[in-house]
Write a protein that binds this DNA or RNA. Structure first.
Lengths: 207, 207
DNA sequence: CTGTTAAATTACACCGGTGAGTTTACTTTC
DNA sequence: GAAAGTAAACTCACCGGTGTAATTTAACAG
């Protein structure tokens, strides 16, 4: 009896639509993306797309949200008093390198960044998610400082956190994002992480 | 008086068109930019726009070229054997900081980056201009290495150059570009430049 | 200073393509 | 048998680019 109370909205089709839309947005950007093409790519009628998402905009926003959640979830960390700072920083860098070297993530981010640069609402949306991440690393930094393992004034914790992320990205993200350089292969992650940590500690380490 | 203004090809109108187009492209991106609006903004008839530029594409390319020339011209430098490496690197960093903190440059770049991310031809175009700049700094680095002032293998000169630029940008460009953070005020340039040089030399300096 | 001339500009209607979103009549699936 | 999906035609607004006839402008000759 409970058998035909099954979910009415067809989740499989919905997923197919989302996948197709992601692909199309990545390929052509928001403005260039074509709803007919998305329907076709998802093997679904155009009307079905509109039954799941009321507009192109809402479809885009749904995708943008998921990408950002994924990114944020992948860069969580807690400071641990017992482990040397160098080890922990290296660990942090490796985590970010793994995320940033993932081809799917790179492609999604490329698309999001493009819209971010000329779309007010996307920009605002992104900004709030981004500040969450920032406050996270800032907390980590001030904990490390309080534990005496980092030479950082409390009010500069946020800046230091930004700089740490910035270092990783300058080596393994921005060049790949804009210049289409190949993702950094896994074998090099350790070396890059150590390089970043050395640079970072040359400013914020105890001498 | 007004003798030599307004020669046959009306340079004033042409400039007005270019200005208006730059504004419109910055505001709405390439796809979103509207030729009627550009004409209106330039106080010129639409037909005149098309008398100066055969298409939207060509208008965009003209602007893109100008921006890149400006950027490239501002980051030239020659290695000087007589001056300590630290001083020269700081000088280099300051030069780039000046460019990158200019609000007009930032706005133009933001627009270009957006198109770069989803337009094949723009990307290719940019890539060639960008590699020029890269080979420039790479040369500088290998000269410094040959003079014994830098601990860089010749085949890593290009990588080191990239990293140097990357360091500056991670502190004073990317956050401003994407997150709309305020440009770094001039008073902080010296401090940032020194920070960058310290980080860079912690890897490539002689200890 | 003035009239001539040709290029530059203008206003405006027009073309053709595109693409988001809708309507409708029908079929599939549970 | 009702919700979900389909196909295809349709609306409607937008926009890049063109054609044209009329008007303005600047260089120059007398």
């Amino acid at each position: 009896m409970a058998r035909f109370m099954n979910r009415r909205p067809n989740l499989k089709k919905r997923a197919a639509i989302v996948d197709a839309a992601l692909e199309e947005f990545q390929l052509s950007g928001y403005q260039g993306a074509n709803m007919d093409t998305i329907a076709e790519r998802a093997q679904v009628s155009k009307r079905t797309v509109y039954n799941h998402f009321p507009s192109k905009q809402s479809l885009f926003e749904h995708i943008a949200d998921t990408v950002w959640e994924q990114a944020n979830a992948a860069t969580q960390a807690d400071f641990n008093t017992k482990v040397p700072i160098k080890t922990q920083l290296t660990e942090l860098a490796l985590k970010e390198l793994a995320l940033v070297s993932d081809l799917h993530f790179l492609r999604s981010t490329r698309m999001l960044m493009a819209e971010l640069l000329h779309n007010e609402t996307v920009a605002q949306n992104t900004l709030t998610k981004y500040t969450e991440e920032q406050s996270n690393i800032a907390l980590w930094m001030s904990q490390a400082a309080r534990a005496g393992q980092l030479n950082v004034h409390p009010e500069h914790a946020e800046q230091a956190g930004k700089e740490f992320h910035g270092l990783v990205k300058s080596l393994a993200f921005w060049p790949q994002l804009f210049m289409g350089e190949p993702s950094v292969p896994n074998e090099q992650h350790q070396a890059i992480a150590e390089k970043v940590v050395t640079m970072f500690l040359s400013i914020y380490g105890h001498h």
